[in-house]
């Protein structure tokens, strides 16, 4: 079933990306188009085929020892932050405007 502009808006909301109302139709078209392009993935006989979630290599139980290393000095930690306050990162009201 094809996605509507409303569906596209919900998907964008979830991914926290604002959209222009005017672009919603185009966005829905793109998603519908892609889902159709990708549809062959559903047509294989995959009965009993294990998925490969992780790529190749010796990839089990890879862990590190519980030994402290260096952390970032505070200047570097905050260096790229658009808004800080003292040693903190700062964000505007979390609930405000969403009542």
């Amino acid at each position: 079933m094809a996605l509507t502009s409303d569906d596209a808006r919900r998907i964008a909301d979830y991914a926290r990306i604002a959209v222009d109302e005017g672009d919603l139709g185009q966005l829905a078209d793109y998603l519908n188009n892609m889902m159709e392009t990708l549809a062959p993935i559903k047509e294989f006989d995959l009965e009993g085929v294990e998925p490969t979630f992780h790529p190749i290599g010796d990839l089990t139980n890879v862990m590190r020892e519980d030994e402290p290393g260096k952390s970032l000095p505070i200047e570097l930690a905050l260096k790229n932050a658009p808004q800080t306050s003292d040693r903190y990162f700062r964000v505007p009201t979390i609930l405000g405007g969403q009542e």
């Binding site: 790229n80 990162f89 505007p92 969403q98």
Partner: peptide, 23 residues
């Protein structure tokens, strides 16, 4: 998400700030 780094759009609340920054 424009909190620790990245382009930050002006907005009055976090939800709008995040989605406009990402847009």
């Amino acid at each position: 998400d424009a909190v620790r780094y990245g382009h930050q759009a002006k907005a009055s609340n976090l939800g709008d700030q995040t989605s406009h920054s990402r847009y």
